[in-house]
Structure formats: structure tokens, C-alpha cells
Design a protein around this nucleic acid. Structure first.
Lengths: 226, 226
DNA sequence: GAGCATTGGACAGTGGCACTACCCGTTATC
DNA sequence: GATAACGGGTAGTGCCACTGTCCAATGCTC
């Protein structure tokens, strides 16, 4: 098929498809002439996957590109694939250009919210993973997010350390096992790789949404004053 | 204190503080003259909170504004506050301008990724909340995220319905109870409201990060071929 | 085989967002 | 009384995800 049919089938406009082609998100079609190319079902599938990652999960175009490249490159080794995918993902649209302000003010009063660390939050994460018996790669981005969060909590006056997170970590552990349980059955390696991607990445907003529904329910039980 | 000291104490640049003042994120200082205003500790605190929500959690400026307004307006009623906060939050930077493409193509082949619904995903969420015994407001944004995710999963060929989410929902239920357990002790209503905000909103990236660490660990156990 | 729509490719433009820079008249401070 | 800092306003910046326009080269239709 050609680009107009690809557009119709996928629901993505032609200029956007061209944009994805330029950016390397979508592999080019098979060129049939100097200005003609043929696309196939795989392209339709890929486009839908792209739209899901960008639209539903909210990934940026460049993160989507990295994630898809990881899927393409390592269909065989699921562990390696997961590592690459999780490494390529920004955790929640972090990776901002970062603040301005006094970079390292000589003023001893300045406690600039501790975006790096405050009170050994990095050690805290090490303690937490040790407590859980988790073995991970040396310095995963996810660990940095956790230490950042802990540091921020403390900077804002909430008494929080790694011990506060242990119950959450246990629930996360069971969540992860649920995720992996669902990867056993799947067709060819590409299907399995895509499924892994969906179960880990696409499920993230849904899991947060479940937590919100549950929070609302329990909040009504506990706090509502009828 | 005046703006320069506020900037030093909070680590936020003066132009950015002015920007937050203009946008109503930060309440104005007490005006002492036509071009002079005084800020206090509460402003420092507020600025740090703002930076945490925007920087760590990744909220947009306008969402941050809505959330903070909810905190200010309803310090007394925690349930109402949580409802407002959860309502004001985008779930994962959704709320995109939405796609283009053929809006309602006459082509019967077009299945435009189903950003609204595909195969009764909305009913699925109703079934899920009924199964869990959750009682929530009529049509929470979180429910839409879940149905969107289910619809997308199915559109991509993954066999997924609300039953697949029940185990996750049970874990989410326990997570929410953990969250609310930590709200019992807290000082004045403002402190408690802020704490609720941090435990629900700021914790989100950290919870996803915990899941990722656990995924990496269990993936190594199951799939690594040494 | 003539004519018109479509194609692929390049490049410039758009709108939104989160700041950031500059200017100006006024006010503190030394 | 000079100099610095202040507040307030407007305009500009950089990035991102598209979107629009142009072009010569097909393809398809009659």
C-alpha cells in the first residue's frame, strides 16, 4: 500500500507519518521508484504502537524511538530487552533542562530543594534494594527517581526514609511478578517483545489510575463526613 | 524578606518567581510600597512545593496551580480535597490536542486505534470497580485512562479485559490503604493537606520506579541466560 | 499518450509551554 | 545623592510535536 492508505488504515495524518519516517520512528517503506514506496501491515501495526506509546502513555517522540529501537534490536533476549526499555524510558517526563537559580550559592542558608541529594537519599535506596533482596544494574534511572523523591519529601518537612517505602516496595514486587507472569505465553519473539513493552510501559498510567480509584474509595470510607 | 532573598532561599530564579506570581501559582507578597513587597517563610515553603510538583513529579504549571488552589480552598475536608486534587491531575500528561487524520472516515477498514473506546472498555471499568467494591464519583478521569488503556491493548492484539486487571486492582487497593494510613498523624489542616498532596501525587513516580526495579530483578531471575 | 491527482522528500511555519531578558520608573541603602 | 535592587510589564527564546507548502517525478485513467 502507499502512504495515503497507510494513513487511512492507521488514523494518522500523512504529514505526521512523514514526520515519523524522517525521525526514524517508522522504518521506510520498500522503494518501488524514485518517488514511490510500498508499506505493509507491519507499518500499520507499528504506527498504532507508536500512537499508543505517545498518546496513551505520553512518551516523547525521541523516547518512543529509543524504546522501539530496543525492541527491534533485541527480540531474542527478553531480559536485555527489558533492561534497555526501562533504561530508555524517562520515569515521568523528568529529564527537564533543570532549574536556574544560584548554582552553588555561597550563602549557607540556601537549601535548594535538594534535587540531587539531601541527607543520604542515595544510600537510602541502596538500603531499600538490599532489604528487598533486589539485584539490579549498578545505577538505574529508577533508583535516582526514588532518591530524588525521598530527598524532596525530607526537604519539605515530611519525615520519610527508605523504611517508609518498604511496604510499597513489597507491593511493587508483587506487581512486577504479575507483569512477568503474563510474558510466558506469546507467539514469536517480536510478538513477545511487543507484549513486554505494552505490559511494562503502557500499563503504567493504568496502574496509577487504579491507585487513584482506590484512594478515592478508601478516602470516602475514612474521611467523609456525611 | 524581599524577592532576592526569596530567590536565594528557594533556589528559584527571580524571573521565574515573577512568572509564578503572575500566573497565580505563588500568592503575592505583602505590598509595603508602590514597588516593594515582603515575602515570608510560607512563600519559601510554597516555592519548594511548587518546584517539587513541577520538577520531580513533572506536573505542568497550570495543573500545579489547580492542585495548589484545591489545597488552599479545602484544608478542612480531606476527602473533598483528595477528590479535587485527583480530579485536577492529568494522569500522565494526557490531554493532548488529540490526533488529526480522518475523523470519521467512511472507509470501513479504518480502526483509528480507538482512543475513545473499542469493545466496551468503559463497561469493563464499571465491571472492575464493581468487582472490587469500589465506590467512586460518577466518571473519574482515572477510569477513562483505564478504559483507554484496555481499548488500546485490544486494538494492538493483546487479549486483555478487566479480569486481567483484577490482581493489579487488589494491589492498588492495598497501596491506597498504605497511603491513607500515613495521613492520620499530622499537624494543622494545612500541614495535613500538603502531606496528602505529597503522598498521593509526589509518590507516583517513585512507585513506578519501584515497579521498574522489581521488574529488573525478577526479569534477571527468570530470563537471564548466563 | 495526455492530463490530472498522488507520491515522496525537503523545508519552513505554527502553537503551546516554561521560562528568560529587557526596560522603566520607583524605592531602599550606603 | 549615587548606586543598587525592586515590582511590574512586555517581548523574546528554545524546545517540541506536529502541520503546510512546494516541487519534480510518477501512476492511473481515459
Amino acid at each position: 500500500m502507499r502512504i495515503s492508505e497507510l494513513s487511512r488504515r492507521s488514523g494518522v495524518s500523512i504529514p505526521t507519518i512523514k514526520y515519523y519516517l524522517r525521525d526514524g520512528l517508522l522504518p521506510p517503506g520498500r522503494a518501488t521508484a524514485a518517488n514511490q514506496a510500498a508499506y505493509d501491515e507491519e507499518h500499520v501495526r507499528r504506527l498504532r504502537l507508536i500512537r499508543s506509546l505517545i498518546g496513551v502513555r505520553g512518551l516523547s517522540v525521541s523516547a518512543t524511538k529509543d524504546v522501539l529501537a530496543a525492541v527491534d534490536a533485541n527480540q531474542g533476549d527478553l531480559h536485555l530487552l527489558l533492561g534497555l526499555v526501562l533504561g530508555a524510558l524517562p520515569v515521568e517526563r523528568s529529564g527537564r533542562p533543570s532549574r536556574s537559580g544560584p548554582e552553588e550559592g555561597s550563602e549557607r542558608d540556601a537549601e535548594p530543594v535538594a534535587e540531587r541529594d539531601a541527607g543520604g537519599a542515595v544510600d537510602d535506596v541502596a538500603a531499600l534494594t538490599a532489604e528487598m533482596g533486589w539485584q539490579t544494574s549498578p545505577n538505574p534511572p529508577a533508583a535516582q527517581v526514588i532518591s530524588e523523591t525521598l530527598a524532596t519529601m525530607r526537604a519539605l518537612g515530611v519525615d520519610y526514609d527508605w523504611r517508609s517505602l518498604v511496604p510499597y516496595a513489597e507491593l511493587a514486587d508483587r506487581t512486577a511478578q504479575l507483569d512477568l507472569d503474563q510474558l510466558q505465553d506469546a507467539g514469536d519473539p517480536l510478538q513477545q517483545a511487543e507484549r513486554a513493552l505494552l505490559l511494562t510501559v503502557l500499563l503504567e498510567p493504568a496502574l496509577l489510575a487504579l491507585r487513584r480509584l482506590a484512594q478515592e474509595h478508601h478516602s470516602a470510607l475514612r474521611f467523609r463526613n456525611d
